[in-house]
């Protein structure tokens, strides 16, 4: 034991941890959606937030809803409100991670270089364990939670171009799809895709991972079918967890008549209230429209100034 040089070992460990943490922190900060990246996202998807000002009739929902809980915003009354939502789990975890790593480094520096000889070996070892294993574990957790949390954002879903028609529709103030209406009326204040597409509970988490994996496989192998469609029956629970408790829902006789079928997902809420997203025909139509617009812009750019002049002259004549 005597030949063993703890200082060298420790220095190596510290170097490792510091560089690891630096990497993690860079990752965390990069994942954070800076105003810049949001802005560029909004340009790509033509978000016209001003046109959202006129909103549909006030939502009749009241009380804490699952959407709020999902977003860690239980305190908020109606989900229509866009007021401060406090910290999200992701933010808390991010800060926990940062604090943990800073504390770990400070402890290591202190016990190694200042208090090395002044504390008893038992305490030294405990502090070592804390700063080398426990705190880094928190950092690890914080990082994954942050990643999980940021992938809930609409931006994250929209980064895959397969989702373009859906994300574009979400930001279209004139669209009447369920998704767009929930978005523009702020019935779901954030994580709009995620809130309706991950079934709640542990089973939902499993389904979410499974679907994510499948989608990824289809994507990288280029084997998905256009137009993409929802596989299987949509779990109505995603809708009813917010709506079922409301008067507006319970008053509708058709809801009562179909209650068992709705519970069993034999009839989807979207059967009457859809479409949730643009129908395949509408997706193609909007893409065609965009293509036409693009073609005309590019055609315009190709006309040189001389040609333009001659055109104007021709018109004058």
């Amino acid at each position: 034991m005597k030949k063993f040089n703890p200082t060298l070992l420790l220095s190596c460990l510290i170097l490792l941890i510091v560089s690891g943490t630096a990497l993690a922190l860079t990752g965390i900060y990069h994942l954070e959606d800076t105003p810049g990246s949001t802005a560029s996202f909004e340009t790509v998807h033509k978000v016209d937030t001003e046109s959202f000002e006129r909103s549909e009739a006030k939502t009749t929902l009241d009380g804490g809803t699952y959407a709020n809980i999902m977003q860690n915003a239980q305190t908020e009354k109606p989900i229509a409100s866009t007021a401060e939502k406090g910290m999200t789990i992701g933010e808390i975890m991010r800060w926990a991670g940062i604090v943990a790593i800073v504390v770990a480094i400070v402890i290591l520096l202190l016990i190694e270089f200042i208090y090395r000889d002044r504390i008893n070996p038992m305490n030294y070892r405990i502090l070592l364990i804390i700063s080398l294993f426990v705190l880094p574990m928190i950092v690890g957790l914080g990082t994954s939670a942050t990643v999980l949390e940021t992938t809930k954002s609409v931006q994250s879903c929209g980064s895959c171009h397969v989702m373009d028609p859906f994300v574009d529709d979400l930001f279209d103030a004139e669209s009447t799809t369920l998704a767009a209406r929930h978005y523009k009326n702020k019935w779901i204040p954030k994580y709009q895709c995620y809130t309706c597409h991950t079934t709640y509970g542990a089973h939902g988490t499993f389904e979410g991972k499974r679907d994510g994996f499948r989608h990824w496989l289809l994507f990288v192998t280029g084997t998905w079918d256009e137009p993409i469609s929802y596989s299987g029956s949509y779990p109505n629970m995603n809708c009813t967890s917010c709506h079922a408790g409301t008067n507006a829902f319970q008053q509708v006789k058709s809801h009562r008549a179909l209650s068992s079928k709705l519970r069993a997902d034999e009839v989807s809420c979207t059967s009457c209230h859809g479409p949730a997203h643009p129908t395949p025909k509408e997706r193609v139509a909007s893409t065609d429209q965009q293509e036409i617009e693009q073609r005309s812009t590019s055609a315009m750019r190709k006309i040189g100034p001389e040609e333009l002049n001659s055109l104007v002259e021709a018109l004058d004549e």
Binding site: V44, H161, V162, D164, P165, G222, W224, D225, E226, P227, P280, R283, V284, T287, Q290, E291, Q294, T297, S298, R301
Partner: peptide, 16 residues
């Protein structure tokens, strides 16, 4: 990848 014709993948670079 003719399947993806319906999707406009070139949105960020409309002219190129």
């Amino acid at each position: 990848m003719s399947k993806k014709d319906g999707i406009n993948r070139n949105k960020e670079h409309p002219t190129s």
